[in-house]
Design a protein around this nucleic acid. Structure first.
Lengths: 185, 185
DNA sequence: TTCTTGGTATACCGACCGGTATGGTTACCA
DNA sequence: TGGTAACCATACCGGTCGGTATACCAAGAA
């Protein structure tokens, strides 16, 4: 990817997340990235593809941050995943989940929806791994689903409610779940 | 509200929820409601106000349905609230939560955001009442928050994932929570 | 009977949308 | 030396956006 293309992607990621995909035109993206529309279209071909790349890019940043946190962390690493939502330096999570937000405004046939589904599936699967690792005694699938739902609920509410400590609450709830394994059966 | 105005609001509710607020123009709303744009603007004044009324309308429909379910239900009524998300006849919940979706695409200064916050706060408070009623022994605030997060997570994923039984899972988890009161402290 | 209310139909406005066309400039590389 | 790749600037395209203007019509109330 060329420097200009990288700049476009970075700017698009920031603006799409902050203001919504449909509210941000390609002209604004190009102008903010100090690039001509021609260059933008030479790099991405269409807004649709730019949106897909935005989602993929966002996933990659988040995923590599997660894996790095996991590599450095001690047990239980399930809580490390929860913490990763709070500690991320690059993507400021203050408008909820970029993927849920995108899913809310993209048309039903947009290829970006596949990226969103894959992202959620990946997080959900990684979470199941970690729960199985942390609490082998409990029904890990069920506890993973439980924690996943809590997390999704908390993140969806970031930027809506004022009190952002919901993720912290999820952390505490997850701790209890790992201990006594409730949510099984 | 005049008959034409009512028709506009009904159509707008359906289209805004199905396709997203920013993707639906006032011209399409007017045309679908078999009404002139002039009539639409006589009734609502602006798209912004139409959006606010859409959210309020959606809340009122949902709320009256909930209260009716609660009036007819036996204990525990916490589960009745969960069920209400599944059983609603009028508003087909197949694209996630209308309020979370709207919050994802509205600009930060849109007055509709207040309606969204109020709606969520109301549901959250009603849930706390019901938990206190169903399980007086447990820390009702904490369990209510727990169930609320589960519900929000499940509803946010309707229309993204294929398997829609997440609300059913929440029902089961909530049952367990009411029994043993975990999530407290 | 006149006047207000709630409509109709149509045409228009400026602004913005995603996307394209033309042409020029730099810099590196064979 | 010549060519190609990565950019720049600008202007334009058809279409849609939210919103307004003009003019007409029908029914119920004064």
């Amino acid at each position: 990817m060329t420097p200009a293309g990288q700049r476009v992607l970075d700017v698009a990621s920031r603006l799409f997340y902050r203001d919504g995909i449909n509210s941000v035109g390609v002209a604004l993206v190009a102008e903010t990235a100090e690039v001509t529309k021609k260059t933008l279209y030479d790099c991405f071909g269409s807004k649709q593809k730019l949106v897909v790349d935005y989602l993929r890019h966002r996933h990659e940043i988040w995923w590599s941050h997660l894996e790095q946190c996991l590599a450095e962390a001690g047990r239980p690493r399930t809580l490390t995943l929860v913490d990763a939502y709070l500690t991320h330096p690059n993507l400021r999570i203050n408008r909820g989940c970029a993927f849920l937000n995108a899913a809310a405004e993209l048309p039903a046939d947009h290829p970006g929806l596949d990226v969103i589904r894959d992202h959620k599936k990946a997080v959900r699967a990684r979470l199941a791994d970690l729960v199985a690792e942390d609490a082998p005694a409990v029904d890990s699938e069920s506890v993973a689903e439980h924690v996943f739902l809590l997390l999704e609920g908390a993140i969806a509410h970031i930027g809506i409610d004022d009190h952002n400590n919901r993720v912290q609450q999820v952390r505490q709830l997850a701790t209890t779940l790992l201990d006594n394994g409730h949510g099984d059966r």
